[in-house]
């Protein structure tokens, strides 16, 4: 028995010698269990993420749902031409970008500042810190329909608390029509987003902050830095790479200014001009009355391509800045 075993082992060693350890098949063989485990996920991703991409062909057809794929009429780039000559398209692009940038800036600034401030609560205030943190990320779990209901109730002219407060403080004479004034709409969306997601977004920064070596703080304190000095010179640089990674991730969503908020709060004619985002545009044209699946697909495809391009660009920029890259 023992002799047999030894001989087989030495056999394998002999056979392995000529094999290139870097070859594909060698690696595949070594990792076959891993490959087997990943197969279900591969199939899952293929079916649900790649197969539906075939539907993008719709954008190049005069698509009629009742016809089979081979009976469709191919129209080339007609829908894209219509898209780029549509004045509404530029309007929704403006709205999307404006709200997106407002959201991005507000979300970053508030979440980081919030995390920094929260981080300063230590020692006896730990319990209070935890309560604040829990309360602040609770709104994240509310659905948009509830949040929007709250917002429009709070901002209403007819008994809305903000108007009541402003009037009783004597700051305004006439009630402000928040939900019907185009100038306010983007900001209402922006601050609603802040209210809903600030606490949640700050969690990741708080986690990054905890990984900073406490010795650095001690050293800074000895060097005479105060609270804000330490924040500025230790904490912020410590989470810089996290910030940049998140910025890259979020930049890819630059055309996702949101859908529900604008759809729920912005359907009235007074603010329609500033509320429609590209998602609403795609929905209206794609599934609406006079639109068509084809045109909607074309608009959606445009959005996807731009998003991917922006993501790659930001990734490049991160590389130039000497930061970790995502891809």
């Amino acid at each position: 028995m023992i002799t047999e075993k030894v001989s087989t082992e030495s056999d394998i060693v002999k056979q392995q010698k000529p094999i290139n350890r870097n070859s594909f098949w060698y690696k595949a063989d070594k990792q076959k269990e891993l490959i087997l485990i990943s197969i279900p996920f591969f199939i899952y991703i293929f079916i649900f993420s790649y197969l539906p991409l075939a539907g993008l062909t719709m954008a190049f057809q005069n698509y009629k749902p009742q016809k089979s794929f081979f009976d469709q009429e191919w129209v080339g780039l007609k829908h894209f031409k219509n898209l780029f000559t549509d004045p509404d398209f530029y309007r929704v692009m403006r709205n999307t970008l404006a709200m997106s940038i407002i959201n991005l800036v507000l979300a970053f600034v508030t979440a980081i500042v919030f995390a920094l401030l929260l981080n300063e609560l230590t020692g006896r205030l730990n319990g209070f810190k935890r309560i604040v943190q829990t309360i602040s990320y609770m709104p994240h779990f509310l659905s948009w329909i509830i949040v929007c209901g709250l917002v429009s109730t709070i901002l209403a002219m007819d008994g809305g608390i903000i108007n009541e407060i402003l009037i009783s403080l004597g700051l305004i004479k006439d009630k402000i029509h928040f939900m019907g004034t185009p100038e306010y709409f983007w900001w209402i969306v922006g601050f609603t987003n802040v209210w809903k997601s600030m606490g949640w977004n700050s969690i990741i920064y708080l986690a990054a902050i905890t990984s900073i070596d406490p010795a650095l703080y001690e050293a800074a304190a000895i060097d005479g830095y105060g609270r804000f000095g330490r924040m500025w010179h230790i904490t912020l640089p410590g989470i810089k790479s996290t910030i940049i990674i998140l910025l890259i991730l979020n930049a890819g969503w630059i055309l996702n200014a949101g859908f529900e908020v604008q759809y729920i709060l912005g359907t009235n004619g007074l603010v329609l001009d500033v509320s429609e985002t590209i998602d609403i545009f795609v929905l209206k044209r794609g599934f609406g009355r006079s639109g068509g699946f084809a045109f909607g697909t074309a608009a959606g495809m445009f959005k996807t391509v731009v998003s991917a391009a922006v993501l790659l660009l930001c990734n490049k920029i991160a590389g130039w800045l000497g930061e970790e890259k995502l891809v």
Partner: peptide
């Protein structure tokens, strides 16, 4: 006519 009539949704 209250200006808010234009921003009321159907439920409102």
């Amino acid at each position: 006519i209250s200006p808010e009539t234009f921003s009321r949704n159907y439920d409102d």
